[in-house]
Simulated assay, not measured.
Amino acid sequence: MRSIGLIDMQSGGDVSRIITYGVGHLPGDSVLGKMRYIQQHGDGFRRLLLSEPYGDPYMSLDLIVEPSNPKAQAGYIIMEAMGYPLYSGSNTICTATAVLQSGIIPMVEGEQSIVLESPAGLAHIKAYNENGRVQSITTQGEPAYVEARDQEVDVPRYGRVRYDLVWSGAYFALVDAAQYGFHLTADETTALAAFGDALVTAARPQVTSQHPELGEVGPLPFAHFMGPLEPVGDDGYRTPSATYVHPGVICRSPTGTGTSARLALMYDAGDIRDGQWIETVSPRGSSFVGKVLGEATVAGHRAVHSDITGRAWTLARSEIVVDLDDPLVDSSDLEDVLDTWPD
């Protein structure tokens, strides 16, 4: 018997399960190293909590771990249906809110700065707190950059599809939705998921699984569908968007990393400048705001610093009991990473 402590959060409609206890010591000299260990030796944990009867693949997991960087107050490992993204905006918003509202990191009234360590590096976070609740989170992860423009791939049933490849914590295939008849509305979700599945499956063989600084990051996991830009004042834009997660999921939120990827593509083309912002709106109507902070460089690539602002809400606090004798529990690579049953 094992127990796992959870705080379920949602940001933009995407559910993140924050794991506060239940996993034992993970070897590794960084959060990235700890992530690689559980990925190789304990992936049953991810599968358990994202599958019936314990969960579903539309959820994400954020495992709280000890940070290795002295600047960080906590570390977190992100797990999704597609595997182990190195960074995620919505997951960071949920994790930061959970650790503050639960007291893992003591909350300060008003504006509070904290640092979390993700597998991709440090996330610098500003929380705005009022009466013991986090009202908003602004998170800045590592820089995003364009890996390749004007890529094309033959996609069965859809023909030749053009996309741009961008890194923003994971690799994204960015697609102009209008070129393929999409308006990014709620009634298109099923069709978008089918198109995203076909595109990512076809594109994976030609997309690198190597990051120039982080090493192996796995096969292409995401596609981001871009809608038209609507100017808002002198410095902003609003745009419909949708993010596909392989296999088969359209996110309820527009996603923070999808928003960062769009900013990187616009910045590289000279279509947005420092201090300007975009509000990405998902097919379900939820939105995040991404702001350009300035130019950066990643392994010789022109990159951009940006931040993402959103809010998270608590859905549940619970303890899951896992019986390793249960025939629905695959304990083959699970038992070694779980803590023993508490005395």
Rank of each mutant, 00 (worst) to 15 (best):
R133A: 12
T92N: 03
I93P: 06
V99D: 01
L116I: 02
L122A: 13
T92R: 01
P67S: 08
A123T: 10
C94P: 03
E117T: 04
T139D: 04
R46T: 06
A72P: 07
Y145F: 14
M107F: 12
S102R: 07
M79S: 06
I114T: 00
L86I: 07
V65R: 04
L50K: 03
P57L: 10
T92E: 02
P70G: 13
S68C: 11
T92P: 06
E117I: 00
I93S: 04
Y76L: 05
D56K: 13
V134P: 03
I137V: 04
G89V: 09
A120E: 10
T139A: 10
L122Q: 01
T92V: 08
I105N: 08
A74C: 10
S68E: 15
A74W: 02
Q73C: 07
A98F: 03
H41G: 08
S113M: 13
G110D: 07
A72T: 02
K126V: 15
P57H: 03
I64E: 00
I137L: 06
S113W: 12
E109K: 02
P106Y: 04
P143A: 15
Y76P: 03
L86N: 03
T139M: 12
G103C: 11
G121F: 09
P70N: 13
S113D: 10
P57V: 00
M79W: 08
L86A: 05
P143D: 15
P57A: 07
I137H: 05
S51Y: 05
L116D: 04
Q40F: 10
G141A: 08
G110A: 10
M79V: 09
G89I: 00
T92I: 01
Q135H: 10
L116N: 04
I77Y: 01
I114M: 06
S90Y: 00
F45E: 09
Q112R: 09
S90V: 09
V134M: 00
P67V: 09
L49V: 05
N69E: 12
N91A: 06
G83K: 03
I125R: 06
G132R: 01
K126T: 15
E142S: 15
Y84P: 05
L48G: 03
A81F: 06
V146T: 13
G75C: 06
